[in-house]
Design a protein around this nucleic acid. Sequence first.
DNA 1: GACGTATGCGATGTATACACTACGGCGATG
DNA 2: CATCGCCGTAGTGTATACATCGCATACGTC
Lengths: 215, 215
Amino acid sequence: MRPDEIASALRRAVHEREIPPGQALNQDVLARQYGVSRIPLREALRTLAGEGLVIMKPGLGAVVTELRPEEVEELYGLRLSLEPPLAGDIINHVRRRDIDDLATLVETMAVLPPRQSEEWSSANYRFHRRLYELSDHKHAVRLVVQVLNLVEPYVRMHAHVLGSRARLQQRRAATLEALRSGDATELHDVIEAAIRNGREELVTAMGRPEARQQH
Amino acid sequence: MRPDEIASALRRAVHEREIPPGQALNQDVLARQYGVSRIPLREALRTLAGEGLVIMKPGLGAVVTELRPEEVEELYGLRLSLEPPLAGDIINHVRRRDIDDLATLVETMAVLPPRQSEEWSSANYRFHRRLYELSDHKHAVRLVVQVLNLVEPYVRMHAHVLGSRARLQQRRAATLEALRSGDATELHDVIEAAIRNGREELVTAMGRPEARQQH
DNA sequence: GACGTATGCGATGTATACACTACGGCGATG
DNA sequence: CATCGCCGTAGTGTATACATCGCATACGTC
């Protein structure tokens, strides 16, 4: 396994809270886990550090970035600044084929049994990622993905609280609808509304003492 | 030298076009240059890769990220999305002491002879960075700094074309004025105007065939 | 008993050595 | 003469080994 692949595997593990925020990362353990020495593993950690997903303290190793509620709110503010403006260029570049791909992804999500929330969340993440990649603005996408990666563990932690899956599913459908209609303003508004709702629900969920993680 | 310090040193070298965009980075040479082995150097490169400042291709090593004019425009669009909204929180957190620090920085820039454009650009970069750090939004700052780092080599390449230094100096003074007045809207507008002007000038400068870099 | 100090272990940080890969040049071959 | 294939070299990728550091435990001292 190469450093880039290890980094991807670690991102996934962080997303799924297999490695929760605040967790210290033991290089020896992870290296054995991925069947490599510590050298490529450390390089993967440096990559994630550059993206802000882990923090490396000299002599102490790496820790998964932990977010306080205010930071989650800040990150949602960044999403509001970054994502809706992409609507115009998404509409400009989207092809029939792309819409179909996204639609099948939403279909897949719709038929997933409630048990497999991890699969659903993963598909939901990929949906957003692919949607934004359609804008063909790679730098914007890189920043957006960085932000999405940071909040993803918290989104999943509260996935069961964040509105019914049906409601989210409906939002994705509205996105597809906007894509099909070719109306940039509508897409802009749908994206913005989705983020606002997500922020609202997530921040209140994190505010509840019983839902807060221990430390 | 530690990997983080090496990364900082490399960022500076990239900013100053000592290592220009597109340049392949020889690990042996750089390691010797910084007096370390290739291990910590590679880790520094991975950090920069996570920030988007270099691109690592497996088996081929690292190359300083090269931007086409459209990409520079895209990055300025991101600056417009990210920086002006910080005005409110900058005003909320700024202290007398901070304004004085920024003012002395601007003073320093004002008295620099035209010869030392590298020092001037460096101070200009630090001015923006410190200004945004006042917002106390570390995630926003991280993204903004990433964007600034990417465009910095191009800003400096065309530094002599980008309006007279006097005009830029005046913009910095306007920023200070807005800070002192405590008017968030004014600061917002000053920041936005500065970015718009910068984009305009830089993009047209890059559009000129004779100013384009070779490859 | 409390505090400062020594000591051991677990873990990180990095230099060295070696395997492998990409690439350019050379010669053989048609 | 063009093309293909074969080294040779430069440079990347990583496992191993060792130095070092931080922290916890135990000890000694006051």
